[in-house]
Nucleic acid binder design. Sequence first.
DNA 1: AATGAATGAGTGTTCATTCAT
DNA 2: TATGAATGAACACTCATTCAT
Lengths: 204, 204, 204, 204
Amino acid sequence: MNDETTMRKQPKQARSQKRVDQLLDAAAQVFAEIGYESATTNQIAARAKVSIGSLYQFFPNKEALLEALLARYTEGLRESLTIDQRLNCSDTIRVMIEGMARFESSHEAFKTLFMDSNRVSQMHTEIVQQIDALLAIQFPTFDPAPRRQCAIVGVAIVKALMPLSGPPDYLAPEVVLNEVQVSLKSYLRAVLLREAIPLPDDLV
Amino acid sequence: MNDETTMRKQPKQARSQKRVDQLLDAAAQVFAEIGYESATTNQIAARAKVSIGSLYQFFPNKEALLEALLARYTEGLRESLTIDQRLNCSDTIRVMIEGMARFESSHEAFKTLFMDSNRVSQMHTEIVQQIDALLAIQFPTFDPAPRRQCAIVGVAIVKALMPLSGPPDYLAPEVVLNEVQVSLKSYLRAVLLREAIPLPDDLV
Amino acid sequence: MNDETTMRKQPKQARSQKRVDQLLDAAAQVFAEIGYESATTNQIAARAKVSIGSLYQFFPNKEALLEALLARYTEGLRESLTIDQRLNCSDTIRVMIEGMARFESSHEAFKTLFMDSNRVSQMHTEIVQQIDALLAIQFPTFDPAPRRQCAIVGVAIVKALMPLSGPPDYLAPEVVLNEVQVSLKSYLRAVLLREAIPLPDDLV
Amino acid sequence: MNDETTMRKQPKQARSQKRVDQLLDAAAQVFAEIGYESATTNQIAARAKVSIGSLYQFFPNKEALLEALLARYTEGLRESLTIDQRLNCSDTIRVMIEGMARFESSHEAFKTLFMDSNRVSQMHTEIVQQIDALLAIQFPTFDPAPRRQCAIVGVAIVKALMPLSGPPDYLAPEVVLNEVQVSLKSYLRAVLLREAIPLPDDLV
DNA sequence: AATGAATGAGTGTTCATTCAT
DNA sequence: TATGAATGAACACTCATTCAT
């Protein structure tokens, strides 16, 4: 509970919740603009129009801000990744990728923070589990071990390709979106073949 | 000469060269352990068993250390990526991935630094070009634009999957090696199909 | 606002103002003792019994400390140089010099800082203008160009002679005071003669 | 002898003497360009095309360089101030001031160093004595105590007015030269009157 | 004697964090 | 509870000086 990196108090009162939100919004902005390391807590407090003292009332240290932001993102992402189970495989992937792209563009710091491999843990594993669950539904005979492996690799591919629209490669966003889907589908196809799982029609 | 990020003096004497190597080795270790931003020049000097003054005799600032390390890696990588052109497609990919894996495990900071998207530019573009050249040789009819795109995505995939053997996923190294190849080959296959380029036998 | 050499915040609360005063007093002492260049910000903070962090809360850098001190002096000097216009020429000079001497002995760093020709500009020009104005009043027919020249030379003489009570010459303070007046009056007399301006009775 | 600020060895061999001269020339340049405090010994050694080790073979520390330079200047000045004793008072002053101006413009660091009141001691007193001697010759009945005082004030006036041709006042050099003479002569006249010493014809 | 690589205390400055108000 | 002044360890970097070669 008195974790070094956890929020100090679950704010119950509305006023407190608002404070926390201001703080996290400000943190997101600042992290997005100059990165986690370069951001200063005073900067964030100022941006949030909150005193530095108040910031430390809710967050025991700078890292806790990051953690909370990531948690918030995880929650938001969960929705983006909750997909109509009647969709076929291709469409599932498409909807998911589109969802991520939308999420990314509406949450300024997500890209910066999510890609920074040093700082992911929790959000990362959560997403992997979600994908794993998705696969389990679509392919009931998929063995759990290779399935999890597949999920891990899939997530890694998404993480790696999404930023290709920025520096230093600057591919067109729609190209990126397409290539993510292509690589995901072709990788999935290869794994299913290897695991002797019947290919769905739309992956043949 | 008075570059802000270049080495201060090309070390001519053996003693100096040794000094520089100590320094770069230490920098590699420290960067690998705690990342570029968090690393301090005093830490690096201490690790190298060299005074902080000596460090600054060779490197005008912290960034120059990074730059020199990256240059060293670029050079090393070039060799790892120089591949017998008579190999077929699968083998080319295998040899290349194995080469990267070997390189990575013998150069502590490579992973950390190469993945840190803020700081790669030069090394990154160099590698992309090399892959592009490889593709050009294997598939003479490959149109330059989509070929370059393919190279970019391929490099991104490698960058993303290689670290999977570490935290937070901890896949077995040999598994990682294999999955990189699988995803690379299946992505390449998909692109070739799309571009109406005849598949080589080993990719069918 | 983001001036490189201006105070960071105009201190509004009494406590802050006190802090700033402590800091400036300490700076004055240290500058007086070892000069601006040799003085260190840590030294000044220690002397002011204030943490180095506090110093930088008010002054963005060492130079800002100097600037603020000079500004304080300029203001103080303005009063010392505001002289009853009914006084005759000799008395004006005497009162002015006495005022400066009083000011100097109650503001430790004034001498050091004012004499350091590298760092005066603003205060210097202000004083010159004040003297120029004084001359304009006393000698309405004094042509502006030579009058300004006369003011410049006059100020230079004062600047040069006042420190004669210290090292390396150690003239008695009252002697110094007298000699400043003598040289000022005789120089003024010579200039007035040259400019064909009627000498006031007390300068004959 | 083992003074902290004296040269380590009076160089006897020609080669050593040359070394010392190179060093002092370089020091003069660098001091003139960026001031004593900002100058670094490595810079000076480099400018002199001498190794830093050699510099410290002759000068125990940075200050010794300054001291030696000042000594050199003192010697040079002595000549400039050696004046034909048959000259009348006005001419003596004129010749002397012209000599100083010449000296100043041919010895880059002189102005910078001589005006820096923190660092004068020896050269200053020497000059004062020379002026004192000059006065003794011209005015045999001049009482030693007021005579010395007069010399001190005279030197101070010269020191203060000569730099007026530079920042922040930028008077024309010939104006400066003239005003120095005017103030010197009028001050001397005033003192002589006070001391009841008959005025020479050219001062009436 | 001459070199210049090496040293490390010291510099100005920042910023996460605390705590008196 | 909220504030923001205060703290001081830590940082990147400099430079007078030493000493092995």
